[in-house]
């Protein structure tokens, strides 16, 4: 046991309370669904699935070979269902789910050995090397899919799933500086497509 610091100091912030009114991007409906699903409500879990499954599926497709995506997505949500009682609400549910999904996706990649490069036909060359880009307006997702593999992986993890460079570096077996430079490469390539796509 330790002795307290006897003083009349005040104004010390609360110990780590959760700000329930601002749980990341959770709205009230999702918060309720999380709680219901934690207590076994399958319909509530399906609502959570419907909300988050497209993102998980796209991320899996971009980070792995297409043939594995459905299996991986199934494993992600089965795992989420099983682990949901341990979700304490300290982070937004979407962020927590993204981490579970990435864990599953990356484990599949490691099991299957070196990832296969997936380059779309006519993939844009890196502008910095002086090559020209295909003069095609691609939708955002097509543009992401057309990125060089490493740049795509870093972009999907950093910009679309909120993972920091240090963690990306660990997952992909690269240096953090490499992760940062690949992010830059991805954004430089994507900006071309956005300018043509021009959603203003």
């Amino acid at each position: 046991m330790r002795h307290s610091n006897i003083s009349a100091t005040r104004g010390i912030s609360r110990g780590a309370p959760d700000d329930l009114s601002g749980e990341g991007d959770l709205d009230v409906a999702e918060r309720e669904d999380v709680v219901l699903a934690q207590h076994g409500d399958e319909a509530a879990f399906e609502r959570l699935y419907r909300r988050h499954f497209p993102r998980v599926s796209r991320s899996a497709a971009w980070l792995m070979a297409d043939a594995d995506v459905d299996d991986v997505v199934q494993e992600v949500f089965i795992r989420v269902w099983r682990k949901l009682p341990t979700f304490a609400g300290r982070a937004p549910f979407g962020a927590w789910l993204n981490r579970v999904a990435l864990h599953v996706i990356l484990r599949h990649r490691r099991r299957r050995g070196h990832r296969r490069e997936r380059e779309a036909p006519g993939a844009p060359a890196d502008r910095s090397s002086g090559g020209g880009l295909a003069d095609v307006a691609l939708a955002f997702e097509d543009a992401v899919g057309a990125l060089p593999a490493r740049a795509r992986e870093v972009f999907v993890m950093y910009d679309l799933n909120g993972i920091h460079h240090d963690e990306i570096a660990v997952h992909l077996g690269i240096a953090p500086e490499t992760s940062r430079s690949q992010l830059h490469r991805a954004r430089m390539l994507l900006r071309r497509h956005l300018c043509e796509d021009a959603p203003r």
Partner: peptide
Amino acid sequence: LTLINVSLSE
């Protein structure tokens, strides 16, 4: 109830 349920989970 949401407040309480989150607490129960914590």
